[in-house]
Design a protein around this nucleic acid. Sequence first.
RNA 1: GGAGGGGUGGCAGAGCGGUCGAAUGCGGCGGUCUCGAAAACCGUUUCGGGCUUUUGGGUCCGACGAGGGUUCAAAUCCCUCCCCCUCCGCCA
Length: 398
Amino acid sequence: MIDARAARNDPDEFRRRLARKGAAEQFDAWLAADERWRAVVPRVDELRAKTKVKGKPTPEQLEELTKVKGELKQAELELVEADAARELLLSQLPNPPDNSVPDGYAEEDAEEIRTWGEVPQLDDPKEHTDIGRFDMERAARLSGSRFGYMIGDTALLALAVYRFALDAVAAEGFLPVLPPVLVREEAMYGTGFFPTDRSNIYALLEDDLYLTGTSEVALAGLHMDEILEELPLRYAGFSTNFRREAGAAGKDTRGMFRVHQFNKVEMFVFCEPSASGEEHEHLLSIEERILQGLQIPYRVVNVAAGDLGAPAAKKYDCEGWFPAQQRYRELTSTSNTTDFQARRLGIRHRGSGKSPETIHTLNGTAVTDRTVLAILENFQGDVPDVLRQYGAPATVSR
RNA sequence: GGAGGGGUGGCAGAGCGGUCGAAUGCGGCGGUCUCGAAAACCGUUUCGGGCUUUUGGGUCCGACGAGGGUUCAAAUCCCUCCCCCUCCGCCA
């Protein structure tokens, strides 16, 4: 959620920035609704003040009170309506992009920042399904399409990758967390997945619970409605993630590349507003170090404004090389969500000033199951030595 | 799943129709004392919103888990929901 007061004070600047995400009209609609609301508030406050009587009222006062309360009821009705309209529009506004984010709306509009590693020259690169042991057919029979089993050496390799990543980020001061994956609606709203991304979330209607698509939800929600004493706080969550992949029909249908369920080690940071830029670069550097440790060739891109998603003000993706596809594909992603999630979740801290100040939050991927696929495909079954101490086999076969 | 108890400020914990945004203690902050510190003593200390402001503030409104209701008046009474605790049952 954006800072309403700040937006009110500098509407032109907010409109300019939001226009880069295609939300200029939405912003104007909110501004109008906000103005209407602000017109009703003083009227209600004034009438309420009139209803305040100390002690037992006299008969004359009683008569006056019933009159005022009639007016008040009407005004309060208006207020509720105006407030709901303004709140709804506000909740739908995305986080304005940072000025260092490139223009554009598509994945291709991202700006390449650098590449690392040598792309392997392979005559006839096999895909992960032909190297590791994935059982897609039986998983489909059990759960439907876009599910898979990882079996044997492949399972051990995956577990080693998670553990390797967890160690790497723990060394950077991130506290390991095994979070809930089933959360309430408020947590989804607070993190900005609702209302924008609702179609990608699995819902358990019987219980009003939702399966998280990333442990970011549970990690951000960890400090919901709190005033934090010490910052920064850095966490690393490991969880299984669930995504409906609505709108990805026909896309990446081969193997385990894009599935409804996968595992991920996720970094999450709560920090002071002035520190989030630096924290973001730090998250990116950790992601790169992990990919380098695993010897996966990759490139880093600065994602275009219109492709950011609602909560992010800036996002870097690290894309690993996939030999069979002959292209770089997203492996990790780190976002600076500035105060967008923290404001929705009510997370603040006591700064130098008078009243508590909304903090900033950031997230970044350490590794996912897709990282495992990148290892399999780039080395065609050989396993990086660093993973041996975490229980990975020397080579993976089917 | 069954039976009971409870949710109040950063924490603990009173209040159970009006004088309560809320006693008291702890913690925090400022001060006195001291070479310095501790102790003691004095003062201060919830959050959100609108308007206003010579940026110190001023002013009004809202909030005692959430939402509804009763009443001239609700932290206090009633209803629904959420959460926590205890006992029993079940269970990895």
